[in-house]
Amino acid sequence: MASVGCPLRVCRGILKELRAQCGHKYQESMAYTFVMEQFRKNQVTSEKLCRAQQELLHQAATYLCLLRSTRMHLALHEEYHGKGESKPEDVAKLVGLRLPQQPGGKGWEN
C-alpha cells in the first residue's frame, strides 16, 4: 500500500483546492459537502489498519492530486501558451537570450 500521508492533511488539501476553484462560496458546493461527509464517516479512533479507510484515503489523495495538478497545469498553460503566438523578443527571453541591438538601424527601415 502506497503511503499517502495523514487523512487530515489530505482533507485540508482538497478543501484548499476547492476554495481556490470555487471562491469563497466553496462551502456551499456539492464537492465540499461530499468530501466532508466522507472524511467524517470514515474516521477511525484506533490505530488498527482499516483497509476500507486506506482505500478511501488513496482515492482522496488521487482527487487532491487531480485538483492540484489541474490548477498548476492551467496556470502554466495561461502563462506560456494562453496568449497566442509570442513575440521574438519574448521567445528569446524564455531561453535567457536577448535579440541583438543595432544602433544604426538594420538598414531596411525608412
Binding site: C65, L66, S69, T70, M72, H73, L76, Y80, H81
Partner: peptide
C-alpha cells in the same frame, strides 16, 4: 513542469 502537471492530472 508543464508536461509533468499535465500527465499528473
Amino acid at each position: 513542469d508543464y508536461d509533468c502537471q499535465e500527465l499528473r492530472s
